[in-house]
Design a protein around this nucleic acid. Sequence first.
DNA 1: CACGGCTTTTACGAACTTTTGAAACAGGTT
DNA 2: AACCTGTTTCAAAAGTTCGTAAAAGCCGTG
Lengths: 232, 232
Amino acid sequence: MKVLVADDDPVTRESVQAALEAEGFAAVTARDGDEALEQWRIHRPRLLCLDIMMPGTNGYEVCRRIRAEDDQVPILFLSAKSEEIDVVVGLELGADDFIRKPFGKREILARLRAVLRRAAPARRERKCFELAGLTVYPAELAAERDGSNIDLSPREVAILQLLHERVGEAVPRHDFLDRCWGLDYYPDSRTLDQHISKLRKRIEIDPENPVIITTVRSVGYRSGTLRGPRPS
Amino acid sequence: MKVLVADDDPVTRESVQAALEAEGFAAVTARDGDEALEQWRIHRPRLLCLDIMMPGTNGYEVCRRIRAEDDQVPILFLSAKSEEIDVVVGLELGADDFIRKPFGKREILARLRAVLRRAAPARRERKCFELAGLTVYPAELAAERDGSNIDLSPREVAILQLLHERVGEAVPRHDFLDRCWGLDYYPDSRTLDQHISKLRKRIEIDPENPVIITTVRSVGYRSGTLRGPRPS
DNA sequence: CACGGCTTTTACGAACTTTTGAAACAGGTT
DNA sequence: AACCTGTTTCAAAAGTTCGTAAAAGCCGTG
């Protein structure tokens, strides 16, 4: 997830960058407002942290210009002088949060996540879905089959969700890694197989002859069948 | 939908008003606590945003007086950046959320809607609610199980309330911190676990095998089981 | 300003999950 | 049948997350 950090003070800039990168964000940096705008156009980060006081174009102005093009992307202001932050500015520019310096690594990460969570598409996942007799409740990290409950880990739910989204399709292994593990993560090992194996043991009636998750050799896995579903 | 905004700072008051009106709410405003009470009697808004520090009758006091007449209407506190929000006091008074200034338009709208959504279906429960055999009396800061009484702190009530609102769901740890501790709280520690642990010792029959509050590893906690128990 | 009662943090073991490497296995080809 | 390729399983190593006791921190009281 790309995040833009704009601050003229190299110490702040770099420490924020380091904190973000340590948590798996890709930080793009800028030294001043104009550079921020330029980087914004190039990278289109999913979130911006803007220092208010910067040489040249200041943070407010950068915000205003970005808002002209995109009124969605979350913007978080950093400021050295708390007194100068004005509530009205926050409301009018569409800022999402303000953080006063000095701030801790934990604080900025927590707020940034809060902002992302809030800005995230308010999509309410459907309450449950079914996969060959197994009812999965994503919000509850649980599933049910024949009346008995099975707890699932977030990863397992993600796997089942992906299979459900593409029922009948052979979903390539790589897509699972992408979706369930995160983009640039690439275990070149038996990780996925292992998860599938464990999952089968818990959700299949007969794990030796899987019905819910079937293997598609040299491609990946599939749930359900194209047309003509008969496990006969 | 009528909303009352009480704040002695005209800038905040007017910008919040504008933000609300832009989204289709009818904002009624008040400059201080007494005016807020007066407007409350006249308009009976469906939601209140109260600044904590106001000349004369402060926000907490306004809340207390309104609660004497109506323990349903959602109340949301605004607080200036410098003051510590006393979440415990707020929870005791029956506050529904806290917002720290300065705040973004999106933040206040998001929180306001969240509060409304929460309050809408199951209005503040009559007097009590049940959670796996435990009857909780929020107003009395107490619970009852098998006839014996258990005293609870406001924080504990808040935790149980959140679990009740989302029975069956795996409620993320962060949601507890947000709701039960308030903003600006970034514990890097086992604070939540500690509270859960203490709570379990007092409310569970067998704290080693919790039934009321179960943990959902890597997510948070859950109470109860699947909501739609049978899609049969 | 010490004391008691809370709450939060620290510290660390226990429990659980994920990853990995090795080896057995299965399907399809030659 | 021998081979090649990709999959499954196993067991153990790594890595996380959780629970809790104990220490530290807070706050109002006497």
